[in-house]
Design a protein around this nucleic acid. Structure first.
Length: 277
DNA sequence: CGGTTACCCTGGATGC
DNA sequence: TGCATCCAGGGTAACC
């Protein structure tokens, strides 16, 4: 579910609740989500551990435990998310963080159970895992580095932007928003962009993601919410995603919804006038 | 090897 | 109301 802005919003919400806090207990309710490590290791190292840091790599949440208790990595994927201060017990809890002094609870829930949980012994192990499956973070990649990575594939620009090994953090919503702002058609070849288009694309990635973070991400239906249960504000002002047949905010041409090669069933929204082939 | 598809899950919306 | 179908923001394994 969440892309980079939603995961960043989760992390910012978790920090005040977790940083420096001691875990009385880490309760694993669904061991099948654990991809690396085991429920026993998570419980053993979580018990009594202090949370040293909560951060993000691409779409992954990274929790560092003090005193060599290891690193917990959570990939929320489509429907994973955290709850703080929820009065009633939510559905589909997969992990419960029981905090000590004062006692409090942080829930990690995942309706569809597509998300993954991993425990690594140390930062180096976690770093290896990250580098195996992720390219540079979308907020940190440089313009020339982006150009170089896009030139290495024969695919279209949209599936390439969504490939986490090329750059980490962009999914289906923000790929469409970024391409609209950069005025690039989603079916253009990733390696065929002009210098000017690459400049616009690099700038759009940064600006769209920063704007979305400032608005606490994108919410619709029963999907992503902030850790406090609030909806993100980005989809109230976005350019194309979910706006089929509505007028483009730049030129008033109706937004098109299509399916494109390389992206199985996912929808793509774009403006046929602003985004030419 | 690079690119494309099937599939992992569940719940809500829609259509008959 | 009941049942079937479709759809969803992600990612990986298997296939061509």
């Amino acid at each position: 579910m969440p892309e980079l802005p939603e995961v960043e919003t989760m992390v910012r919400g978790l920090r005040p609740a977790l940083l420096g806090r001691k875990l009385r207990r880490l309760e694993v309710l669904d061991p099948s989500l654990i991809q690396v490590g085991s429920a026993a290791e998570l419980s053993r190292h979580g018990r009594g551990a202090t949370v040293l840091d909560v951060g993000r790599r691409g779409k992954w949440v990274v929790m560092t435990l003090a005193d060599s208790r290891g690193i917990i990595v959570i990939q929320p994927r489509m429907t994973g998310g955290f709850w703080l201060l929820k009065p009633e017990r939510p559905d589909h809890i997969r992990l419960t963080f029981h905090l000590d002094k004062p006692r409090a609870i942080v829930w990690y829930c995942d309706t569809r159970r597509l998300g993954k949980i991993a425990w690594y012994r140390d930062a180096q192990d976690a770093e290896c895992a990250f580098e195996r499956s992720q390219g540079p973070d979308a907020l940190e990649i440089g313009r020339d580095q982006l150009a170089e990575r896009l030139s290495r594939t024969g695919r279209g620009i949209k599936p390439t932007l969504m490939d986490q090994k090329v750059l980490a953090g962009i999914g289906n919503i923000y790929a469409d928003e970024v391409l609209h702002q950069a005025r690039i058609h989603p079916e253009r070849g990733a390696r065929n962009l002009s210098t000017v288009e690459l400049d616009r694309l690099h700038r759009a990635i940064s600006e769209i993601l920063q704007t979305a973070i400032a608005l606490e991400g994108s919410s619709f239906d029963a999907g992503y919410r902030t850790v406090l249960g609030l909806e993100g504000g980005f989809l109230a002002q976005n350019a194309v995603y979910g706006r089929e047949n509505l007028p483009c905010r730049s030129c008033s041409t109706p937004i098109l919804k299509t399916k494109i090669l390389g992206l199985i069933g996912r929808p793509t929204y774009y403006c046929p006038r602003c985004q030419t082939r």
